[in-house]
Amino acid sequence: MDYIDYYKVLGINKNATADEIKKAYRKLARQHHPDLNPNNAQTEKLFQQINEANEVLSDPEKRKKYDQYGNDWKHADQFEEARKQQQTSGRNGGGNPFGAGGNPFGGGSFTGDDGDFSDFFSSMFGNRGGGGRQAKFRGQDFRASVQLNLSEVYETHKKTFTINGKNIRITVPAGIENGQEIKIAGYGGPGSNGGPNGDLYLSFEIKNDTSFIRKGNDLYKDVTINLYKAVLGGEEMIDTLSGKVKMKITPETQNGTKVRLKGKGFPVYKKEGSFGDLYLSYHIDIPTQLTTKEKELFEQLAKERS
């Protein structure tokens, strides 16, 4: 496997912080997403490398292994175990081919070319030809971000995404939240020597394309009513995500009055038929550009009230 410099892929240095890695990944993932660059094999390959780089560098343990072993970071535990076994063998009189330090990699970063393996590792992991028993390795997990509108996740629906050059059709459950992550088994990197594929983790970025504010499963909305309806009462048609609702405005409604519409909020994730509530806040529209007659009427009303 060719060595890939994940730091270079994300355009960061080796001392980058977790926040810097996250920002770099999000920027590049949006820029090179296959949906924005259809039928572009080069972009799809780069997008896959971006996800691979984020998968490794955003995980402190994986990053540590990558810094030490390079492209073969996934086999670090096996390498360490083999080294310990060989050291034990040396203490028992078998000799240590790695020298006093017991380090098969000479103390430096390991780039993963097949020619750099010792015969011992070749026989254990099957990296050279021959009759050695080949170990099976699970494929790498991938991570990708998906952008959806708030109105889209009000109902459960199926959607096709292009991830790492593959079209994946999944069911997006109603009520999924911004930043939520789901796992799609087997859609990560291919395994080695017959090992299982890795998994794909999708994180959702939900853009609010509505006039509502979402807080958990509840929705909030400002509603403007005219002065006369606020004073005298009446009816107002209110938009909800499930359709229009006729609301009764009680006489003498005050500015900032809040009302709750039970069950008219956002669906609860994976709880079919369960919804949050919708909270309305009334704001009274004061009339402007009054006619002479209207001013006289308001003045008359003011005298009556005084």
Score class of each variant (00 low, 15 high):
190 P>W: 15
236 E>K: 09
201 Y>E: 04
242 S>N: 09
232 L>M: 15
224 T>V: 13
189 G>V: 05
294 E>A: 05
166 K>W: 07
188 G>Q: 01
298 F>N: 11
180 Q>H: 09
170 I>Q: 07
282 Y>P: 05
236 E>M: 12
212 F>K: 02
246 K>P: 14
172 V>K: 04
185 A>H: 14
274 S>C: 08
299 E>M: 15
244 K>W: 13
296 E>T: 06
300 Q>E: 15
172 V>G: 02
244 K>L: 13
207 K>A: 04
222 D>H: 05
247 M>I: 15
234 G>I: 12
178 N>W: 11
174 A>M: 10
194 G>H: 10
216 G>C: 03
225 I>R: 06
205 E>W: 03
193 N>R: 05
198 G>D: 06
278 L>Y: 08
234 G>F: 10
257 T>S: 04
270 K>A: 03
226 N>R: 05
247 M>Y: 15
297 L>M: 09
285 D>T: 12
206 I>N: 00
264 K>S: 02
164 N>D: 14
163 I>E: 01
273 G>N: 05
257 T>Y: 11
169 R>W: 07
220 Y>K: 03
286 I>G: 02
210 T>V: 06
278 L>G: 00
179 G>S: 06
228 Y>P: 10
192 S>P: 09
214 R>D: 04
289 Q>L: 15
209 D>F: 03
280 L>G: 01
260 R>K: 08
172 V>Y: 13
270 K>C: 03
219 L>C: 01
279 Y>C: 03
271 K>C: 02
220 Y>P: 01
197 N>S: 14
244 K>V: 12
171 T>V: 01
241 L>F: 08
296 E>F: 11
287 P>E: 07
278 L>T: 00
264 K>R: 06
284 I>N: 08
246 K>N: 15
246 K>D: 11
217 N>M: 01
164 N>H: 13
182 I>A: 00
246 K>I: 07
174 A>Y: 08
298 F>K: 08
244 K>T: 12
231 V>R: 13
298 F>C: 10
167 N>G: 04
214 R>K: 08
254 Q>F: 12
266 F>R: 07
205 E>C: 09
276 G>C: 00
264 K>M: 07
265 G>A: 00
209 D>T: 02
207 K>Q: 14
198 G>V: 06
296 E>Y: 04
243 G>F: 10
233 G>D: 00
176 I>D: 01
202 L>R: 05
196 P>F: 00
204 F>N: 02
222 D>F: 11
182 I>V: 06
246 K>V: 13
255 N>E: 10
192 S>K: 14
215 K>Q: 03
265 G>K: 00
300 Q>H: 14
189 G>C: 09
170 I>R: 08
162 T>C: 14
185 A>M: 14
282 Y>A: 06
267 P>N: 02
277 D>K: 07
187 Y>Q: 01
247 M>G: 12
227 L>T: 11
200 L>E: 04
262 K>R: 12
203 S>Q: 07
196 P>M: 06
236 E>P: 15
272 E>N: 09
231 V>Y: 11
294 E>V: 13
251 P>G: 01
168 I>Q: 03
282 Y>N: 09
232 L>C: 13
165 G>Y: 11
241 L>H: 09
192 S>Y: 15
188 G>E: 02
